[in-house]
Nucleic acid binder design. Structure first.
Lengths: 345, 345
DNA sequence: CTGAAAGCGCTTACAG
DNA sequence: CTGAAAGCGCTTACAG
């Protein structure tokens, strides 16, 4: 009810000037022990809390950054968010959570809102639906970086933390090959962003390298986006219809889970009849039956690296490497291993 | 680089006074069409963006709230967060994400930080480890509410959005009873918060009501907290050792999944040999094999209600009902249904 | 070692 | 319809 005390109140209570209180609090001038004590006591008594809004106005900073993602309620982004939030805190920043739901309208609105609120930087966690948004951010001259995508706006290469998806796909195909696959297929949601396109590209390259042919009937790429698990369920039926496929490379674990669900219902056994590999290594992967082999991305570290990168930009350090590429890794589980005992690495 | 333009710059460029620009922007005075146009043009030209920090200082508000949880990387909190973030945005607020990792140190630090940053309200998403924190928040007179827990500090009953856990347990026991269970057991992590204690309480009451005895050998309650899935795995072994149990009530889905994993490894079939019900209805529940029957909490709506409640406090409306209780519901899946076809509701 | 003064970028009575 | 003035709660040269 009655307003919070300000420095002025503290000063009055301690019988000093208001700047003196500021100096005591910030150590910006040497104040005698006696005065310091009086001030400290007044602060205690009045339960004074500094007003960051005022401080920030004067100092032109806010100690806040923003994390923009499509949907926090997804294992992938939640893990990323954890890395971002934690590292930001370690740098002394608080994090705004911005869910866009893939809504381009919201993407722009959030950006403007963040600029107005003087967020000091932005971590973008996905490939924005509305690409002009990158330009908007750039125009307003606010530090930002991208995780798991990249962009160039007016010659400016946006700093990013990426995953080598070409390499990831290579690991997957190599593994399927080692597991004895004869006819592989590629299953995916629409290739609407660079991440997915690279996974596909990596697939094709690796197929070539391992001497596989790739014909149209081995590509199951949906043309419209909807729930991934359902997409997988639908693709699963098409794969069975094909009849000759013995190995599935799914561009995401959720897709793979849907596919396996369909297989199960048709009594097609994984890994005995068909082996399946996913991508992302979501928590679910180890819990489905059979446990799903997958390509893991270091999400948590990616979030941390992203913040570190952003911080160096905010602090105006010039960064040697503006595009950090992290390595994916293969996590082998039951869905690709017919005889677990016979398998050796 | 060169600093962002301020209202003063806009005013100069439009040949008017700075307050006039403010009035044009906020509609706080009727300005002639001609001047309005000049101002608008200057704003466009200079790409002016209002500085919310300054505005907020003057208006003593910030349009920000905070959401405090232990760990965003958990299906439960992620869904809650989604509801909170979305609703906050609909109210014109941005949300700070605060992960405490159950660290009491961080709990207090975040609270102080948020008070300093003048967050207008706080949604607490769990029972704080450090209970004094509730008092700290209260002392500083900042609006706050609790989701899925409750607290009273110095006679002040903290507004909350709760779930009727007694009822949830009742639904679970009733269902196990209907499914023909003879000897039920209760499996849980340590009962360290009110939510878990209520689930247990509800279990006991319902057991009584349905004429079951509850003896010590039907309670599998761990004494130290660690990974839930692993806890379940460990409890699973103990249940099998007991030998006579034919129905398991797990206080969380993660626990149930661990239990089922153990059962599977010992070739104990669910639901044929033992039926299992979980609690929380996490996304994973429908994906494990067999799919897990569970008690669902309306997480997303809880987040939304929480924000609505907080907003009415912020706006100083007096609220009729400070303790909102939401209803859990039973989600029946395969883990409790031996003969799906014979089952009728 | 301490304080008077200016200013951060806005809003908001109050005049005219 | 428009502007001069005060003030939000701080920081930061600058005097003394």
């Amino acid at each position: 009810m009655n307003r919070r005390p300000t420095m002025k109140d503290v000063a009055a209570s301690a019988g000093v000037s208001q700047p003196t209180v500021s100096h005591v609090l910030n150590g910006t001038a040497s104040i005698s022990e006696e005065v310091t004590e009086r001030v400290l006591k007044a602060i205690e008594d009045l339960r004074y809390v500094p007003n960051m809004v005022a401080k920030n106005l004067k100092q032109k900073k806010t100690d806040t950054i923003a994390f923009i993602i499509p949907d926090i309620d997804s294992g992938y982004y939640a893990q990323l968010a954890k890395g971002v939030e934690e590292r930001a805190r370690e740098h002394g920043f608080i994090t705004f959570l911005c869910n866009t739901f893939y809504n381009p309208e919201l993407e722009s609105r959030y950006i403007m809102n963040l600029i107005q609120h003087k967020a000091e930087g932005i971590v973008i966690g996905y490939g924005m639906v509305k690409e002009e948004v990158y330009r908007e951010i750039y125009k307003y001259n606010i530090p930002f970086i991208i995780v798991d995508d990249s962009a160039t706006v007016e010659r400016y290469c946006v700093p990013s933390v990426e995953i080598d998806n070409i390499k990831g796909s290579y690991l997957a195909v190599q593994h399927l090959h080692d597991a004895g696959a004869k006819k592989l297929c590629f299953a995916s949601e629409p290739l609407y962003n660079k991440t997915l396109r690279n996974r596909f590209e990596g697939f094709k390259r690796a197929m070539d390298e391992f001497g596989y042919e790739v014909s149209q009937d081995q590509l199951f790429i949906e043309s419209v986006e909807y729930n991934k698990m359902e997409m997988g369920y639908s693709i699963g039926a098409k794969i069975l219809l094909n009849g000759s496929i013995d190995a599935v490379f799914a561009s995401s674990d959720n897709l793979a889970v849907g596919i396996m669900k369909r297989f199960e219902e048709h009594n097609v056994r994984v890994p005995d009849d068909i082996i399946v590999i996913g991508y992302d290594d979501i928590p679910l992967a180890k819990l489905v039956t059979p446990a799903l082999t997958s390509i893991a991305q270091p999400k948590y570290p990616m979030g941390q690296m992203g913040v570190d990168l952003l911080m160096s930009i905010i602090k105006g350090q010039d960064i040697k490497n503006k595009r950090i590429v992290m390595e994916p890794s293969l996590i082998v589980r039951k869905s690709t291993i017919r005889n677990l005992n016979a398998w050796r690495y």
